[in-house]
Design a binder for these strands. Structure first.
Length: 562
RNA sequence: GCGCCCAUAGCUCAGAUGGAUAGAGCAACGGACUUCUAAUCCGUAGGUCGCAGGUUCGAAUCCUGCUGGGCGCGCCA
């Protein structure tokens, strides 16, 4: 899954793999599972003592070759061709080969970053494949809650990563705009409408009691006066449902945009019925023998495909379940030509994975092309205590409230900073804090600091431009920083393929650490040694670009001053 | 009862494809501003990787069984 099958091999890591592969071939060690340069296992060592790259290939080859790892490593190191890229190759531990990249090659990264600019980190590994990312898809019955925030942030960032890696990406939001809950929604608005017109109403019959319902009812009153009362119930409620759904979706869209998320397509469930896609999919399933009737209902034989319970598609009363239209929707995604379909679901929906994958299988669609990423739920912490985000308790309820409270950057950062499998604790006060305790400021501060340096250099007339003598960059901190820059494209690809946005944050935090350490040990802007100053400024500019590109992938701003 | 997720330093968490003395931030302790942003840096201390087995030359990582926590198991939406 994480095998990055890059073809261009522009990345430094790819170049290193090729060099190692040549050595493997020259030793006659190929066709042992290492059959192409892409098969060479390469890792970025945790410790800088282990060089810029390391490979454990001699350990994995020990068995098929029936030789000791040390012996194999010795041969491979001996077989490494003279190259301008590898500066040093050492055998260490049980048989690792640690590789240190030649300083000149690392210095070349600075120019590479400068030339690529905002494109540095992007790649074409997606080869233009069409991917749909569907996420949030909350019911159109009220504002988005804080709980949707994590899913929105992760879904959007996965989409950003896919775009950066050359996938044609569509962000889609599915709207359950028909069914019982919409009827309840209309009834709720209707009651408030009648109330606003002075009628006596039984509000406990309303399914939705939120203030926003009252607002919409008043808007309807303003627009139509009491004229809607003359219409029959069905007609009036249809109008109210349409109006309310539109208003709710507009507000959801607005709060998402405020959160940095813009959907390409809002797909209404009614579209499926309008185009008879629900009946079509039912017919197809019937033909495939995936259905049966029992006690007047129509069942989907889920258990025929995956180990799970059978599910009802049509109730004995004849009404369709949501599961049925969900199947039609997912079939439609593939009919629209998407090569990969990614659903981002909250952990409370994990039980639906097996049935949806079964449905795809029954329809003859490869269930692996439907990726369902499950995001664990979030607990919100305030003053050291976990708080229930309920309106009654007077806490933040909507996503919009949260963004207003902590800001878009902090909200996204905190939602993205952990693996999606972790049960996230969102510390609201920490997110608001502008201090060293808040990890987001550590990142943004590094970027702002570079901006300040570059500005200072401009004021003092030190050349930032091209033509700096980069060979002057030779300290361990400078080299470490360049090595880190070289890893960025690899990191973006890994994060994209693994659908793990949090790793970008880990990477940027490490980059910030390397930069701050460099900054403290090295004078950057100086008129005593202008050549060195120029070289260091060129390095700083490259670091700045990587920060900007990385933060942009996360949808977080890169402030120029703080 | 069944299913999914989680359990790593005092706290919050990283540890891709099994591999080198298990890492970071915060908290604690000790240092560093006549110098480009100290929202920073340097150093010290801190862990039976929930428990017990198993596979492997090698397991925090894979398998099985437990324990503890979160979530889910309708002709609901």
């Amino acid at each position: 899954m994480l095998n990055i099958d890059s073809e261009n091999g522009f990345m430094l890591a790819d170049k290193v793999k090729r060099i190692i592969y040549e050595a493997v071939v020259s030793c006659g060690f190929e066709n042992t599972g290492i059959d192409r340069w892409q098969d060479v296992p390469l890792e970025i060592p945790r410790s800088k003592d282990h060089g810029d790259f390391a490979t454990n290939l001699s350990l994995t080859l020990a068995k098929p070759l029936k030789r000791t790892p040390g012996e194999i490593a010795g041969k491979i190191v001996g077989g490494l061709a003279e190259s301008a890229i590898i500066g040093k190759a050492e055998i260490a531990g049980p048989g690792f080969i640690n590789l240190t990249v030649a300083p000149d090659t690392l210095r070349g990264i600075i120019e590479e970053v400068r030339d690529a600019g905002a494109d540095y980190g992007k790649s074409d590994i997606g080869k233009g494949k069409k991917v749909q990312v569907e996420f949030v898809s909350a019911n159109p019955t009220g504002p988005l809650s804080v709980g949707h925030g994590r899913i929105a942030a992760i879904g959007d960032t996965i989409a950003r990563l896919l775009e950066a890696c050359g996938y044609e990406t569509v962000r889609e939001y599915y709207v359950n705009d028909i069914g019982n809950q919409i009827k309840n929604l209309a009834i709720s608005v209707d009651l408030r409408y009648k109330e606003a017109l002075g009628q006596d109403v039984q509000l406990d019959q309303a399914g939705y009691q939120g203030e926003y319902i009252k607002t919409y009812a008043l808007e309807l009153k303003k627009e139509y006066g009491d004229s809607l009362l003359k219409k029959d119930d069905d007609e009036r409620r249809k109008l109210m449902a349409d109006y309310t759904i539109k208003r709710v979706l507009d507000e959801q869209d607005e709060s998402l945009k405020k959160f940095g998320v813009a959907f390409d397509r809002w797909f209404g469930e009614h579209e499926l019925y309008d185009a008879d896609l629900v009946e079509d999919v039912l017919k197809t399933l019937k033909e495939k023998g995936a259905l049966y009737e029992d006690e007047g209902a129509l069942w989907f034989a889920t258990s025929k495909y995956r180990y799970t319970q059978d599910r009802v598609l049509k109730k004995s009363g004849g009404a369709s379940t949501y599961f049925l239209s969900d199947i039609a929707y997912h079939k439609n995604k593939f009919d629209r030509g998407f090569d990969i379909v990614i659903d981002i679901w909250g952990a409370d929906h994990h039980g639906y994975i097996a049935r949806m994958k079964s449905a795809m299988e029954a329809l003859g669609i490869d269930p692996d092309k439907l990726e369902i990423a499950v995001v664990q739920l979030v607990r919100f912490k305030k003053s050291g205590d976990f708080v229930r985000m309920s309106k009654r308790a007077g806490n933040l309820v909507t996503l919009s409230d949260l963004v207003d409270e902590v800001g878009c950057d902090a909200a996204r950062f905190f939602f993205l900073m952990r693996t999606k499998e972790s049960h996230l604790d969102f510390d609201i006060e920490l997110a608001k804090e502008r201090s060293e305790k808040n990890p987001m400021f550590y990142l943004q501060y590094a970027h702002a600091r570079i901006c300040s340096l570059l500005q200072k250099a401009g004021e003092e007339g030190v050349e930032v431009a091209t033509g700096a003598d980069l060979a002057l960059l030779e300290t361990p901190r400078e080299l470490a920083l360049m090595s880190k820059l070289a890893n960025f494209p690899w990191e973006v690809q890994t994060c994209c393929l693994a659908r793990e946005p949090h790793r970008i944050i880990t990477f940027l935090t490490e980059l910030a650490g390397d930069f701050h350490a460099f900054y403290h040990g090295h004078r950057v802007v100086s008129d005593k040694d202008k050549a060195l100053s120029s070289a260091r400024l060129a390095l700083c500019a490259a670091v700045q670009t990587v920060f900007a590109n990385g933060l942009s992938l996360l949808g977080i701003t890169a402030p120029e001053s703080m």
